[in-house]
Design a protein around this nucleic acid. Structure first.
Lengths: 240, 240
DNA sequence: AACAGCCATATTTGGCTCAA
DNA sequence: TTGAGCCAAATATGGCTGTT
């Protein structure tokens, strides 16, 4: 994996496949020996070459046999319970991608909101009528967070003091502008204690268009893909 | 392996060992699945946890069994011939390190020779009396090579022509200086056809001090460590 | 403790070149 | 064609932090 990002698919070109195989095989064996040493565990690797005429193993054959016999002697149930089989692996992958998707959507959402603020600054128009109840709700939270950040920055600047007023004033202006807008919108959108309730009535008149792009599948798991059917001890984000 | 370079040894701290184990286990499984996909081969991984109560495998148990049975069905001889066992692994490592050592020594040697030339330029003294027959022999080859380089550069410069005589002359001087010295030494050291023979008599009077630092083990393989006892198809430098 | 995530650094490894 | 070796991009993963 260098120069070009590798596509996880069968390498068609014979020579490249060969090359990759050799490099990765060695890397793999190294990794196996490392985890074995570092963690004081038994492990083995068995790798066939393309023609299935050779097989490479690590560490020694006798070691392998020992590892294997232990594995085979596990009660069937025990084994399958702890096993990370291909199906589980696939599910993990799906879950992973789904998580990324969610994150991406969230990201898009934030950018969208920033745009809204920018538009407001420029045109004085608040396009809230494009948003649903939930959108407005999230927007409110977003602004709350922005406000916190702004306040932090302001107090920092206050600490810095009067010395570099030149620069200070300039940035302060920009930030104050945002702050004012933030407050204005905040007042428009939220303002009570019970957010759910509050949102309900504040957004009432505005809720017409639902921002479909941002709603598709957001927060939903496809029902025909049950999430992580087994209870793995070691499912983790690195798991590809 | 990040922040700190990892020492390839059993991790004492329980929690860290655990952490490392999990991360690496996942990385390992990912690698196995990748090589399997990319190269269209069968491979499996079997990893025990520290307590040896669990075992994690990839891909599925049935796949593993298939891979294993194939492995076990190989004739014993075939297997061991193709196997990269722990001992072979170790030997590889040793051979590798030894190669590096040799290279390093060669490097030192060249630097030393360059120094000799530099000394001659400054003091007019040739410290050849510090060198053994072999040293002088190598020195001769070194100078031959240097001469070739110099001649190349000179003809290049000749091609470049009269335009930038300023720079040309400057570098030419330096190089010509070296060349002259090179020739002088060359005449001193070599000069006939049969190098071995020739070396013998030319160095005769000078051979007093053997440059031990540069001779230790140079070009010798420790006899109690037979080199690569098996004929592997895939021994390669990445092999850890 | 176990675990998710981040981040900076350590390692791995495609792609290329030179040499055998 | 194979193999060694270099190099920079792609990954892997210690060590930390925050959460549950």
């Amino acid at each position: 994996m260098a120069r070009k990002k590798v596509k996880l698919a069968y390498i068609t070109c014979h020579s490249k496949r060969r090359e990759t195989f050799k490099k990765r095989k060695n890397g793999l064996i190294k990794k196996v020996s490392e985890i074995s040493t570092l963690c004081g565990i038994e492990a083995c690797a068995i790798i066939y070459d393309k023609n299935n005429t050779q097989v490479e193993v690590w560490p020694s054959e006798s070691e392998i046999k020992s590892v294997l016999s232990r594995f085979m002697s596990f009660p069937e149930m025990e084994r399958s319970k702890k096993m990370l089989d291909q199906e589980g692996f696939l599910r993990q992958t799906i879950a992973k991608v789904y998580e990324q998707l969610k994150k991406q959507i969230e990201e898009t959402r934030k950018k969208e909101m920033t745009n809204l603020i920018g538009q407001y600054i420029h045109t004085g128009e608040f396009n809230g009528y494009l948003m649903s109840k939930n959108d407005l709700n999230d927007f409110s939270s977003f602004i709350d967070e922005s406000l916190k950040t702004i306040e932090q920055k302001m107090s920092q600047m206050a600490i810095i003091g009067e010395e570099d007023i030149g620069n200070g004033v300039q940035s302060m202006n920009a930030i104050e502008g945002q702050e004012n807008i933030g407050h204005a919108l905040l007042r428009l959108v939220s303002g009570g204690e019970d957010q759910q309730e509050n949102m309900g009535h504040v957004a009432q008149g505005l809720e017409t268009n639902i921002c479909e792009d941002l709603q598709i599948n957001y927060g939903q798991w496809p029902m025909d893909f049950p999430m992580l059917p087994f209870s793995y001890d070691s499912v983790d984000p690195n798991g590809f």
